[in-house]
Write a protein that binds this DNA or RNA. Structure first.
Lengths: 151, 151
DNA sequence: TATTGTTATACTCTATAACTATA
DNA sequence: TATAGTTATAGAGTATAACAATA
């Protein structure tokens, strides 16, 4: 098992175990965080679209479909639902009359903020079960995990 | 923002930022790991059921439904699909003739192993972009993340 | 002629309600 | 009477195919 893995330049057998441990923990923790939802009426993809818009500011339906790994007709429907809920705004594209520009409303921004707050609170309450040493290790690793997540 | 959070016993403002960073990174990394699938024909819940069986050895459909946060009729269908694919085995319950016992086959075990291998390889290739210091921080944090994921 | 987005339609996954068998 | 699991049916969410408008 675990053969044929790309060697880390600084790696050895301990790294294989560390990678495995990291993968397992990140996936499980990610799943549990996802369950801490603030609005049950939004589908995972709808939430994800709002998150993307929060990062990018605005995007066309086609761009959103590619980023969310969803087909264009699905994104048409998702954007229409989000618009009906008052969470996104659609405007004509300045250069290309075929395209549209989708951006988030202030209501969406507030909802995302509340969602982050709730998940942070849940994670923080979990972290209370850790001792100071463990917590220090997590604090040190957090920026590295962020770097990894954006690579 | 981020007010009304439960205080960590050893916490301060730096912890709020760390929790936020941790949450964001874990969720994003988890999503990207999930996309590294070995078998497109298995739904997320089917994969999750196999993972649960791998940990628990065996379970009844009712237990699986509770663990996967799915209603019993949905689990009936999922178990039937997995059985048709040769990934689980159904046996009568020894003490209660209403219940059944579901366990994974060797084929499922092999598939899960391949899935872990693939995701580990992807994560390891990402980690090659880190320097030795950062990697050491991740290695130190991995067991803590595992502890957190199981709390 | 290629591209962006939409409409029409079908498939997958999950839920609720009603049913059967066993405790 | 309560519980485990199933069947029947409906509702989301997404995909593919065919189409309209614009580049």
């Amino acid at each position: 098992m675990l053969t044929n893995m790309p060697d880390l330049s600084h790696g050895d057998d301990i790294d294989v175990a560390a990678v495995n441990s990291l993968r397992s923990a990140v996936m499980r923790l990610g799943r549990r965080l996802k369950h801490q939802r603030v609005d049950e009426s939004l589908s995972p993809t709808e939430m994800s679209v709002l998150g993307t818009l929060a990062r990018c500011g605005h995007a066309t339906p086609g761009e959103l479909a590619r980023k969310e790994h969803v087909q264009p007709p699905s994104m048409t429907r998702i954007v229409a639902l989000l618009e009906a809920k008052g969470l996104v705004r659609l405007e004509p594209h300045p250069d290309d009359r075929r395209q549209k520009v989708v951006s988030q409303t202030e209501q969406a921004e507030a909802m995302l903020e509340e969602s982050r707050r709730r998940r942070n609170a849940w994670l923080a309450s979990l972290a209370e079960g850790l001792d100071e040493d463990d917590w220090a290790k997590l604090r040190a690793a957090a920026p590295v995990l962020e770097k990894l997540a954006h690579l």
